[in-house]
């Protein structure tokens, strides 16, 4: 029986965004990462090939994380003490990108400072050739105080600076524009808020091919369904031609997963939860893969084993000859 395969033909597509710049391009990265460009829903190869596979970013903390799960501490060992070593280890493990996350603390437990931040960024850039996403601690004033000098000190590297939120996007966008960087906009799980921030950011003159958006997700069991549906809706809107939703999406299953009790805690929990480390990795990988199938272009992970599994899944999903 001949059956006509129902193919969607969409008028819109996702923006193509290149992260990082090599020596020839005004930066110092050994490789760049290009994301976006989708003309179909994720992995519908019978309609269109996936132009750029989803990529995996590994999170590196600028100062040794004080509150990470013991499972992660064990997995990474002493590399956690030095962000440069850690970033290198991520590259060796097969990461596509490094997300360098600053907290409120700088060196010697003092508050994070511009000098410290610039220093760490430079060390990390010396130790890895991967493109970088650099995130402030998430408090507008502190973010501005470190991201602006970082942007100045790394002009031309096409770093992704974040987080741009409604309260502080102007400063970060201005710093990105002045130094040929990209920005990451983050809005709380809402299609319209995401659009609104994108309108505001592009309104400042920042070209769409320099913005990545984080629509915010919850971890498995902790609101993943909201993030999942918001992402599906954003992607559908993008394909339908709504320019302010056509940004590639970055989401953070690692951050979300490893703050849940299921991943973080190993004692005093029900037997039905099973073995701790494997559960944590499952929690992170299931979250990541569900979000990749909802349209994520970048997933930020924490556990090295998760990197291996998610990378394998991405490879399988993007292998078009089997479709």
């Amino acid at each position: 029986m001949p059956v006509e395969i129902p193919k969607d033909s969409w008028p819109g597509s996702v923006n193509t965004v290149t992260l990082g710049a090599t020596g020839d391009q005004g930066g110092s990265r050994t490789s760049t990462v290009t994301i976006g460009g989708e003309q179909s829903l994720p992995f519908m190869h019978f309609e269109n090939p996936t132009p750029h596979r989803p990529v995996i970013a590994m999170e590196v903390a600028a100062a040794r994380p004080a509150d990470w799960s013991a499972v992660l501490l064990e997995a990474w060992g002493s590399t956690l003490d030095d962000p440069a070593v850690w970033a290198r280890a991520c590259e060796d493990a097969g990461a596509d990108l490094i997300v360098l996350q600053f907290g409120l603390k700088g060196s010697d437990d003092g508050p994070v400072s511009a000098e410290f931040a610039v220093e760490v960024v430079k060390e990390v850039m010396d130790s890895t050739g991967l493109p970088l996403v650099v995130l402030g601690p998430g408090q507008a004033e502190i973010d501005n105080s470190i991201l602006v000098p970082i942007a100045d000190a790394t002009k031309g590297e096409r770093i992704v600076l974040g987080l741009c939120e409604e309260g502080n996007y102007r400063t970060i966008v201005a710093a990105a524009m002045a130094n040929d960087h990209l920005v990451l906009g983050k809005t709380p799980m809402d299609v319209n808020l995401a659009k609104q921030l994108n309108i505001l950011m592009t309104d400042m003159g920042l070209p769409l091919d320099r913005i990545v958006m984080d629509p915010t997700t919850g971890a498995l069991g902790y609101g993943i369904e909201y993030g999942y549906s918001v992402m599906e809706r954003l992607r559908l809107a993008a394909l339908q031609g709504d320019a302010m939703t056509q940004l590639p999406m970055l989401v953070t299953p690692g951050v979300e997963t490893w703050k849940t009790k299921e991943s973080k805690v190993g004692a005093g929990i029900p037997d039905e939860w099973g073995e701790w480390a494997e559960r944590g990795v499952n929690w992170e990988t299931l979250t990541a893969v569900a979000l990749i199938e909802a349209g994520a272009d970048v997933v930020v992970l924490r556990h090295p084993q998760s990197l291996v599994r998610v990378r394998a899944a991405i490879a399988e999903l993007t292998a078009s000859e089997t479709a």
């Binding site: 498995l220 549906s229 939860w273 099973g274 073995e275 494997e278 559960r279 499952n282």
Partner: peptide
């Protein structure tokens, strides 16, 4: 059949099938 796998799968199912 391993609890550390079954538990997250069942939670995923619960989440995805929650009425929005």
């Amino acid at each position: 059949f391993a609890p550390e796998l079954i538990y997250p799968l069942l939670v995923l199912r619960e989440n995805i099938f929650t009425d929005p």
